[in-house]
Design a protein around this nucleic acid. Structure first.
Length: 633
DNA sequence: CGCAAGCTAAACACGT
DNA sequence: TACGTGTTTAGCTTGC
């Protein structure tokens, strides 16, 4: 059977090899057409954020560049000279750009090491990029300076990718913090405008020569494994948006995207990047033709454009909102961005280690927040995947999801905070199908959904699931059938699915227990009490209604479903966390659980879920705790 | 290395 | 017959 799906396997394989795991989307990302799909998909989100992020990223790079120069470690001219002196594992060099911000590196490594890392990474990336592009080895023609700039560019692209990933993952939460100690403003203050301008200008020039094929689409870089898909133009474009200082780069002449013979914002890697279109175009000419024919000014295009505008708008709004929140959070916590803390890593690097450094309050958003962000970066780190592989993070597979689960990201919380993001961005939500299905079901007042309604919820809530329907729908069905926690009930309107909360919870604790390290870290870091407290606080703060409402206890079974389930799994596996006995079987509704793969079913008798077997749930209402939280838009 | 958990693919049964 | 819904099985990957 599997054999037959050779092509499919192949498609997914690459992704998994990347350490990203495979997603329904993955297939798309893997093969030809698919690749376009994913790429394009991401492209839909980026426009808005890009503008913001690229500014920051560019600034960051610029800052780094200046920093390096100041340190005398890596000025364009001496790039090759000094690096050999410091030995840095290639893996580190490769990872750093993706996983660690320069600040972090600076905190962890010595200047020399940092430089070495950067250089190694740059060299590697450069090589890879060139390989990808079929450019072959570096052309001798390119002077040291040019080379250096190109490297800087690559670095910038990597950073951009990283940020985009973070953005997608965190839905822009704490973006600025993610930048590290130095905020945009700080940076702009610290670095003279002229320096930045100069740097960018030069970078643009050098890049222009070497990267003519790159598209403007950042998303591509995210989805694919190509380290350098972000063309300098992208950065510039974005830059022009914010810092006036940064304007006047190569693109200053034109405020709009110009269709040069070599690049077009809607064209990249031989594919049309028009939302929803993945048409293959061998060259720019063909693309232009395609563009004019397929995407002419008509109702459809107009509608798509409108949608895109909304996406951008929403993202911008969310970014602003999240930034503001972060600001407030940091202010409240007296966290000084520039404080050189060993582990004040950007959110995306939050780990058990960093957690230990934080006080319970450090995460107003509670654990919930980090999880998402943590997932991506952490995964690669742990897995030691290369930068390249991690670059395709947007579509993390099982690994990511599992990690998230472990980090107890309350799905509801995550969703609450980022649902707009997931709704518009084709980013795979960092949750398992089971948790999503559960969320979908719990989101309804009745706590029961037909299969089709579940499908609709998926597509409504996640842009990601508007593609590859066959794949994920199959997965949904598979999950519904496979997991005991999902109970099929013959209802008036047919068969509906409900969640057996108890069963659902049952399967999670083991995980936590299973990973003593994680648990230990978390415990040591915050202590359960603290953790719980912070988590609750986070819940309370979370947008999710559910969070605010019911005390954990009530939620015991189903109530807390959303955030809680994950929470439970994480911090307080029933056993350890005495504070929140939520999981304790309080519901004694006799619902029969699926007979299936029952694990060592503890006592199926107690079902928290409003399982209405064969009939409409009478007491669904009882589960109000959940209902309360069900505010999912 | 083995196991568990997840994901994906696919075959198959049933009902509409 | 086509399609939707459910169930199952199998292969893979990843984390512990």
């Amino acid at each position: 059977m599997m054999v037959e799906s050779a092509s499919e396997s192949i498609r997914s394989t690459p992704t998994s090899q990347n350490g990203v795991g495979s997603l329904p989307n993955q297939p798309d990302g893997g093969g030809g057409r698919e690749g376009g799909t994913s790429v394009e998909s991401n492209g839909e989100l980026t426009p808005a954020d890009l503008l913001h992020f690229q500014q920051q990223q560019a600034l960051q790079v610029a800052r780094q560049f200046l920093l390096q120069q100041a340190t005398g470690l890596s000025s364009p001219s001496n790039t090759e000279n000094k690096q050999p002196s410091v030995q840095v594992p290639v893996s580190v060099a490769m990872m750093s750009p993706q996983m660690i911000t320069q600040q972090q590196m600076q905190q962890i490594l010595s200047p020399g090491q940092i430089q070495a890392v950067l250089q190694q990474q740059q060299a590697l990336m450069l090589q890879q990029v060139r390989t990808v592009k079929g450019l072959g080895p570096l052309e001798p023609v390119m002077g040291n300076k040019q080379l250096a700039f190109q490297q800087q560019l690559l670095q910038m692209q990597q950073i951009q990718q990283q940020h985009l990933l973070n953005l997608q993952r965190q839905s822009m939460v704490g973006l600025q913090s993610g930048q590290g100690p130095m905020s945009l403003q700080n940076l702009s203050q610290a670095v003279s405008p002229s320096d930045l301008h100069q740097l960018l200008k030069e970078m643009a020039n050098s890049q222009e020569e070497s990267n003519k094929q790159d598209s403007l689409d950042l998303t591509t870089s995210i989805t694919t494994s190509y380290p350098s898909k972000v063309s300098p133009s992208t950065a510039h474009t974005s830059l022009t948006n914010g810092q006036s200082v940064l304007q006047n780069t190569r693109r200053d002449s034109s405020s709009h995207y110009e269709v040069t013979p070599s690049s077009h914002p809607l064209y990249g890697h031989g594919e049309c990047r028009w939302p929803g279109c993945e048409a293959l175009c061998e060259d720019m000419g063909q693309f232009i033709k395609h563009l004019n024919m397929e995407h002419a000014l008509d109702d459809r295009s107009t509608a798509q454009c409108r949608v895109q505008m909304q996406v951008v708008q929403q993202l911008e709004i969310q970014l602003a909102k999240e930034s503001e929140r972060l600001q407030a959070m940091m202010t409240h916590l007296h966290m000084r961005p520039s404080e050189p803390k060993p582990f004040t890593q950007p959110l995306n690097l939050v780990s058990s280690a960093s957690l230990t450094k934080m006080s319970p309050d450090n995460y107003p958003d509670g654990l919930p927040q980090p999880p998402t962000s943590a997932t991506a970066p952490i995964t690669p780190l742990r897995q030691g995947t290369s930068v390249i592989s991690s670059s395709s993070l947007p579509s993390l597979g099982p690994v990511r999801r599992r990690i998230v689960d472990k980090f107890c990201t309350p799905i509801s919380s995550e969703l609450a905070q980022n649902h707009e993001f997931y709704k518009n961005a084709e980013v795979r939500p960092p949750f398992t199908y089971a948790s999503l299905i559960r969320q979908a079901i719990l989101d309804t007042p009745d706590r029961q959904l037909t299969l089709n309604e579940i499908y609709n919820w998926f597509t409504r809530m996640f842009a990601y699931f508007r593609r590859n329907t066959a794949t994920w729908k199959n997965a949904v069905r598979h999950n519904l059938s496979l997991h005991k926690c999902f109970v099929r009930v013959e209802n008036v309107k047919g068969a509906v699915w409900t969640v057996d909360e108890l069963e659902y919870q049952k399967r999670r604790p083991p995980k936590m227990t299973g990973s003593p390290t994680l648990v230990k870290n978390m415990i040591s870091g915050l202590g359960y009490g603290a953790l719980n407290a912070s988590y609750q606080a986070a819940l309370a703060e979370s947008n999710f209604p559910l969070m605010n409402s019911p005390p954990l206890l009530n939620s015991s079974g189903s109530g807390f479903h959303g955030g809680h389930d994950d929470v439970t799994s994480t911090g307080e596996p029933g056993n350890s966390n005495g504070s929140s006995p939520r999981l304790s079987p309080q519901y004694s509704q006799p619902v029969h659980v699926k007979e299936e793969p029952a694990e060592e079913d503890v006592r199926p008798t107690l079902l928290s879920a409003p399982t209405n077997q064969k009939t409409v749930l009478p007491d669904d209402q009882d589960m109000e705790p959940e209902t309360a939280m069900e505010d999912l838009p």
